[in-house]
Each structure stands twice: as structure tokens, then as C-alpha cells.
Design a binder for these strands. Structure first.
Length: 587
DNA sequence: TGCGGCTATTG
DNA sequence: CACAATAGCCGCAG
């Protein structure tokens, strides 16, 4: 068969495939690929280079919204060198609208066809790939048909052990297209989740961004990183014996203050507690914030706290961490997920979301590049104003410092107002913030009622829906046979979870839409989003276009807000700066 | 060997 | 020490 990209692009274009229209793709390295759009479908045998060339031509000339089953499929395309612009990710949309984490193809299919979820063939895993054969699959039916005689999708299709052929790839793409079309039509018109179609697109495209951040990595200078670790955890040990010796000598500094002959394992919280009791300090636990005020009580406390710091640096963020995650090319790499199991925030491994501030000076832009760092200001109360439709809180959002405005309305100090607002969103019931809660309730009844309603529903075990249409399942949070006291506390915890999840989840949706908008607008300038941190974006940009990227980051936020909260009543703002290293203040 | 608890870091 | 996350080590059950 011919594999002339121009011909293929032309035939797809003639069939109506264009910017934003759904085009399912199934590709198998070494075999070939298939695409399926509305009224256009074909499959080709192709080597990897030809496949990448052809798909890239389709992307360049037609810019469709590529339908894939999951992030692993789009990652495989990226690894072939195909950078997709927009995406419809069946697993991401399934997680959004159905809830829960499991989103393997047979499960998505079963939901699409209204099959009993309890009869879905078990793939043996619940994540991105399906690569296990099941006995039932092998024993029955036509191996070229993705659908089993019982109506379920074959769980051995599409995985790594799958015997791909152009015919099967075409069938796989056709099934994906069918589901995507159903998801689009179904979600676009549902009145109780008007944002779902919009959010489904950005949540899908975030999967592409996750692929790219995982592949590209975060620029990090290994010399600087090593020197920071060295200053906090000591020089790099030559071997296991030397590492042991360093550990022992580090322990000895603390144990020198212990009673003579006492032998305690500092890595065991229980033994640390016993050690402290021996020197006359009784504490319910040994957390740093609790020991901090007791430094004057006994000379062992200060070295113990310092030991904790150094121990953490040498375990979690030490040489082993650098060796495992920092590549020779000066890139820190980890895995990224577009939505976590709770409210839908992004998560990252390799310490990119909890890197100690001391390590951040090692995150340095390449020569000739600059970072554009931008973070949303006071995003949670602004999100609360938008999703609850509270006109008074929306009014407060029009000033730069929302908390100061709330403080003035309540007639309290700014700090009190801040902890009160945050406390309302977290479900805090004690402390200074709680005292201001009654005033907050009087001043902003719409917002507070909204939070109370989420709390109440969650306590009752009812699912929640975020502003963007993400279903938050509460059925996995039921508890049985707990003592009354524990049950009450668990119910209260569920309420706090629900109260916060509708805010945190909606903020995540806004942030992710911003992130993919920046990704899209910055591409032509050669700039990449290299880090997403809940309300903060780090973009790696060529120096000459740094200012241009900074401007487009701000413009992307305005554009995102116009689509996400079109009535314009709530103001969102970003603090955007050009910096050379992550730790730099704005300049 | 798997898992809950404790601890520390981040937003 | 609220809400969320990742991650390492210890202690304990199986």
C-alpha cells in the first residue's frame, strides 16, 4: 500500500477531518497504524519512521483532536517522535465523568455499552496498559474481533503482548472513535455538568503534557545539586561501608547527649520517644514542630532536630535520589499523572512536588534559556467565589489582595481573615480562624452554604461533582464496624474531605486548562512547560523570547478564565517572572 | 513480603 | 498540624 502523507492528509481532509475533529489513532511500533475519523478510516503497514512522518503530517496539516485509550498510547507516539497538539483520552474522560481510578479499555467499553461493571474481564491491573491475556479471552471468539461473544471488550487487545495487524489496529481505532463520539455527545448536553465537555478536552490534553514532562525532564545542574546535597548530608560515601560509618557518626552526635550506656535507634519514633522520656521530656509524638519549643529543656533536642534534617537529606533527597532520577543530560525525570485519586490534582514522582526549598537553586535553565515562573495568587478563595456563585466574594476578588478585602469586611486583622477563609475550606473547627467563622458566614452566606452542602453530602456518602464535572466517588470511603467514636470522627473527616475536594478539584481543573493553553501557545516559540505544581507553572524558554512567553502565560490565564468562568465576575491573577533558577525571586 | 504508622517535604 | 500528595524507615502480621 502507498504511504504518501500528502495523499492521506488530502483524503482525510476531504472526508471532513479538520482542526479539533476527533481522529482515533492506533499505532503499533514495527507493525503499522490505523486512524479513524468520522467518515474516514484506514490502516497501513509502516515502519516506525514512516509512521511518525505520516502522523506528524496529519497533525501539522489537519490538527485533529487525537483519540487514544490512555496516556500510555500517547506516550508511545511521543517516543516515536510524534508530538500531538490536542487529545481526547478515553481513560481520562472516563475517570472524569464516571469517577474512580480504574479506566482500562474493557471497563470503559462496558460503561459505554451499559454492561454490568461487575462482569468486566479482569485485566489484572488497573492502570494504563492492558498486557495480560485471560483464559476466557483465549478460549473463545474470533481473535480479529475486539468484542467477545459476551459483549465485553477483549482484555488482550491493545496491550504489549497483543499480536497487532493492520486489521486489528483499524478495529481498535474504530472502537475508540465510537466511544469518544459517545462521550462527547453525551457530556456536551448534560445540564448538570455544563463544563464537562470543555474540561474533558483539557484533562485529555494534560495527559500529553504529562507525557512530555516525563520525557523531557526538569532542567537541573548536577554539579550544583551534588554540592547542595554535600552541604546538607556530607560528602558522597565511596561505598556501603563508608555510608554505614557516616550514619554511625551522625547518630553519635545525638547519642552523646543520651544517658550513658543507652542505645536507641534514632530512626524509630518509638525509641526516640523513650529516649526523650529518659531525659525528662514527655511528648505524645516526636514531630519537629512539637520538639522545636523544647530545645531549651535538654541539650539533646537541638542535635536531634538537626539529625532529622540531615537524615532526610541523605535518604529521600540525597545521592541515591540524584543517581536514580537525575540523568547525565541534566534532566530530573519522574512520572506524571494528570489526576490523582481524590480531587483531580496532578501528581509527580521523583520529588518534583515536594522538593525541599534548599534544593531549588539546582533547578537552572540551560545556557541561552530562561525560566518563566508563574503562580496563581490566592487561587482557592477565588475558585470558591466562582464555583459557588457568591457575588460578595466575587466582589472581593476584584482587588489584588482578596484576604485584605475580606478582613476589612469582617473588621478583623488580615491574618485572621485568611485563616478563617482557609479554615472554612478545610473544615477547621478550632483555633482563631474558627472564631471568625460566624462572621464569615454572615458576610458570605452563598460561599459558606456551598461548602456546608458539600460537607453534608460527603458525610452522607453521596458522590460530589466538581464545577468542571468531575465525579468524586464517596462509596470507597465507607467504613464498617467502627466503634462509635471512631465512626463519628471518620464521618467528620469525610465531610472535611468533601468540603475541600470541590474547591481543590475545581482549582485543579482551572490550573490544568491554563497549563495546556500555555503549552499550546508556547510551542511555536520553542518553549516547554517543564513543571506543574498545583498553582505554579515553570516554562523553559529560549532567552530571546522569554518576555514574549511571559506575556503569553498571562494572556493564557485570561483566555482560560474567560472560558472557565465566562461571567467575568471573579478575577484571577498570576505572578509571572523571568528567572534563571527556580529559587530566584522575581526580577 | 506487605501494610499501617510516623515523619518530613511541598502546594 | 485542617485538605491534598510522594517517599523513606520501622514494627508487626502473615
Amino acid at each position: 500500500m502507498d504511504l504518501v502523507p500528502d495523499t492521506i492528509v488530502e483524503s482525510l481532509g476531504t472526508a471532513g477531518v479538520g482542526r479539533g475533529s476527533l481522529l482515533a489513532v492506533a499505532a503499533s511500533p514495527g507493525v503499522g497504524f490505523a486512524v479513524a475519523g468520522d467518515g474516514a478510516a484506514f490502516a497501513r503497514v509502516a515502519d516506525d519512521d514512516a509512521m511518525a512522518f505520516c502522523l506528524t503530517a496529519i497533525e501539522r496539516d489537519l490538527a485533529p483532536r487525537w483519540v487514544v485509550w490512555n496516556g500510555a498510547e500517547s506516550r508511545a507516539l511521543l517516543d516515536l517522535g510524534v508530538r500531538l497538539g490536542a487529545c481526547w483520552n478515553l481513560a481520562a474522560v472516563h475517570r472524569l465523568t464516571v469517577g474512580g481510578w480504574k479506566a482500562d479499555p474493557p471497563r470503559i467499553w462496558a460503561h459505554h455499552r451499559g454492561l454490568d461493571p461487575s462482569t468486566v474481564p479482569d485485566t489484572g491491573r488497573d492502570d494504563h496498559t492492558v498486557d495480560l491475556f485471560t483464559a476466557a479471552d483465549r478460549a473463545t471468539g474470533d481473535l480479529d474481533d475486539p468484542v467477545r461473544p459476551d459483549g465485553h471488550l477483549r482484555s488482550d487487545w491493545g496491550g504489549r503482548l497483543w499480536d497487532a495487524t493492520p486489521t486489528r489496529l483499524a478495529a481498535w481505532a474504530a472502537v475508540a472513535l465510537e466511544i469518544a463520539q459517545a462521550q462527547t455527545i453525551e457530556r456536551a448536553g448534560v445540564a448538570d455538568r455544563p463544563k464537562a465537555a470543555l474540561i474533558a478536552r483539557s484533562e485529555s490534553t494534560v495527559e500529553l503534557l504529562c507525557n512530555e514532562m516525563a520525557a523531557n525532564g526538569l532542567p537541573m545542574d548536577s554539579v550544583v545539586a551534588e554540592s547542595i546535597v554535600g552541604s546538607l548530608a556530607g560528602p558522597r560515601p565511596a561505598g556501603e561501608a563508608e555510608a554505614d560509618e557516616i550514619r554511625r557518626s551522625r547518630d553519635a552526635v545525638v547519642l552523646a547527649h543520651a544517658p550513658v550506656g543507652a542505645d536507641f535507634d534514632l530512626r524509630s519514633p518509638g525509641q526516640v520517644k523513650s529516649l526523650l522520656r529518659r531525659v525528662g521530656i514527655e511528648v505524645p509524638d516526636t514531630r519537629a514542630w512539637r520538639l522545636e519549643p523544647l530545645v531549651g529543656r535538654h541539650p539533646i533536642v537541638k542535635p536531634l532536630l538537626e539529625w532529622r534534617k540531615a537524615e532526610r537529606m541523605s535518604t529521600t533527597f540525597g545521592y541515591a535520589w540524584l543517581d536514580e532520577h537525575l540523568g547525565d543530560d541534566g534532566r530530573l525525570r519522574g512520572s506524571w499523572t494528570s489526576c490523582d485519586g481524590a480531587a483531580g490534582r496532578m501528581t509527580a514522582s521523583a520529588g518534583m512536588h515536594n522538593m525541599p526549598a534548599e534544593m531549588r537553586p539546582a533547578v537552572i535553565a540551560d545556557d541561552g534559556y530562561v525560566f518563566v515562573r508563574a503562580d496563581l495568587g490566592q487561587v482557592e478563595p477565588r475558585v470558591l467565589a466562582a464555583v459557588s456563585g457568591d457575588p460578595k466574594l466575587a466582589k472581593a476578588s476584584t482587588v489584588d489582595d482578596l484576604y485584605a478585602e475580606v478582613a476589612e469586611t469582617l473588621g478583623v486583622e488580615r491574618e485572621i481573615a485568611k485563616v478563617a477563609v482557609l479554615g472554612a475550606m478545610y473544615g477547621q473547627t478550632t483555633g482563631r480562624g474558627a472564631q471568625a467563622l460566624a462572621e464569615l458566614r454572615k458576610a458570605y452566606p452563598v460561599s459558606m452554604d456551598f461548602l456546608d452542602e458539600a460537607d453534608r453530602r460527603a458525610r452522607g456518602g453521596h458522590d460530589l461533582m466538581t464545577y468542571g464535572g468531575r465525579r468524586l466517588r464517596m462509596d470507597n470511603r465507607t467504613d464498617f464496624d467502627l466503634p462509635e467514636q471512631a465512626a463519628r470522627s471518620r464521618t467528620a473527616a469525610r465531610g472535611r474531605y468533601g468540603r475541600n475536594a470541590v474547591i481543590q478539584g475545581a482549582a485543579a481543573e482551572l490550573f490544568k486548562m491554563w497549563a495546556v493553553t500555555v503549552r499550546s501557545r508556547a510551542e511555536d516559540l520553542g518553549a516547554d512547560v517543564v513543571l506543574c505544581l498545583h498553582d505554579e507553572l515553570l516554562v523553559h524558554a529560549p532567552m530571546p523570547v522569554g518576555q514574549e512567553v511571559a506575556t503569553l502565560v498571562d494572556a493564557a490565564l485570561d483566555e482560560t478564565v474567560r472560558r472557565w468562568a465566562p461571567d467575568g465576575s471573579v478575577r484571577f491573577l498570576a505572578d509571572t517572572a523571568l528567572i534563571g533558577r527556580w529559587s530566584d525571586a522575581k526580577d
